[in-house]
Design a protein around this nucleic acid. Structure first.
Lengths: 225, 225
DNA sequence: GGAAAACATGAACATTTGTACTAATTCCCG
DNA sequence: CGGGAATTAGTACAAATGTTCATGTTTTCC
């Protein structure tokens, strides 16, 4: 009934983690229905029974995998900040850096992130973790906006993160657009938004640039009824 | 091997639709793993075998259910436009109307929408439909922005839709925030964004309002490790 | 070295799920 | 109204899945 304890031996712990990573991969690639004991074990290259040896149930395995993913996103965020530190200090540079960093990640990372969001909507256990992660995102966004000179960064931050996640979500749902076009659009979006919350002169400058770039009309896809 | 045809009798057709709606409900409430033959039949109040009578496989049932959901979102959008027509013509009014309309929908509608996005990421069959729906959203967003006087509405529209979906997604993932606060924030976000793509005077006016409202700092949730 | 604890795994079992099949019932139309 | 098609429903079965368990192996610690 109670959850299995953390293994004490190193090899065990890494094997356990192997299973968690396999679960995240399967979740990203095939959705929740693809995360089965057997599939996870096969992908991790361990025998079937390992999954039930390390985890009480498939639900618990999945939940822990999602928490691992969340903690890795936080680490990733810190790494991004560390890497970006000093590399740019203008709106232009920051927007380019962010767009590039977020778009060069694997598609699976974004998908897994959204699966976590979905799961958090149903599982109160996860909700606190997701809330903390989102708050962390918003804190960082607020810092960046503040660094650039936004007037009310903490207020604009949630919108900034929403814009980013919305863009990435649409890219997951509609992956056909060329990568370069998408990244350019993303960068322009970010720059425009940042400029929005700055003072008026900065804003004017950036809005002009946003407007001057060739407006790419939405490509009409063959109608599906 | 081929898909079953549309039933000829009225009762049959409505029953078939009943199954599709049940599938969407289950998907929204319990995720993809909750959509099983038996669960769908039970929720629709029809015998087990109906699901296999009307649909080739559970996959086909799910796919069609998702397509139904998409087409209903399009209808909903048209209804919103019709209802909003003439009710507002200022940025303030439009933002309030949009925030209210989008936030008073059931939570399940948003969740189902995002499940469709996730599924489209994996299923090329669905992708075209999702692309069309997103393009329709962006077209409407572009019209609204154009109506309000945006300079390059078609270029700002994708960002606008991304902002909306991102906000709704975060609300799904983190539903604890009070509804009124969330709606007010949403409205402010929309108004700010719209103002962003307007001329400078409009923008200044709205940015000032956005900034003057009490900035609600992110509530720190108890740390989950 | 050897016992005890921790770890690992193959095989089996119970349940859930997808699907097929047959018989009964209802509906449509001449 | 009667016959054939459409639909409904009960049931059975094969496959997939979650889980258990007995047993074998490795590691730890004295």
């Amino acid at each position: 009934m109670s959850s299995r304890v953390q293994p004490v031996q190193q090899r065990s712990r890494s094997r356990r983690e192997l299973l968690l990573r396999a679960a995240v991969e399967l979740l990203a690639q095939g959705g929740p229905r693809a995360v089965t004991h057997r599939a996870v074990a096969a992908r991790a290259g361990v025998p079937q029974a390992s999954t039930t040896y390390y985890f009480e149930s498939i639900q618990q395995l999945t939940d822990e995998a999602l928490r691992l993913h969340l903690s890795e996103r936080t680490s990733e965020l810190e790494a991004m900040i560390a890497e970006a530190g000093g590399k740019g200090d203008s709106i232009e540079e920051i927007a380019r850096l962010m767009a590039e960093m977020l778009m060069t990640r694997s598609r699976e990372i974004a998908i897994a992130q959204f699966e976590v969001y979905m799961q958090a909507g149903r599982n109160p256990e996860l909700r606190g973790h997701v809330t903390n992660t989102l708050n962390a995102f918003e804190r960082v966004a607020g810092s960046v906006l503040a660094f650039l000179g936004a007037r009310h960064p903490e207020r604009a931050a949630p919108a900034f993160v929403a814009l980013i996640d919305g863009f990435l979500l649409h890219r997951v749902a509609r992956p056909d657009q060329a990568h370069e076009d998408a990244e350019a659009l993303f960068e322009a979006m970010l720059a425009l938004f940042i400029a929005c919350v700055m003072d008026a002169e900065e804003f004017e400058k950036w809005r002009a640039r946003f407007a001057s770039e060739q407006p790419s009309g939405p490509p009409d896809v063959s109608a599906h009824s």
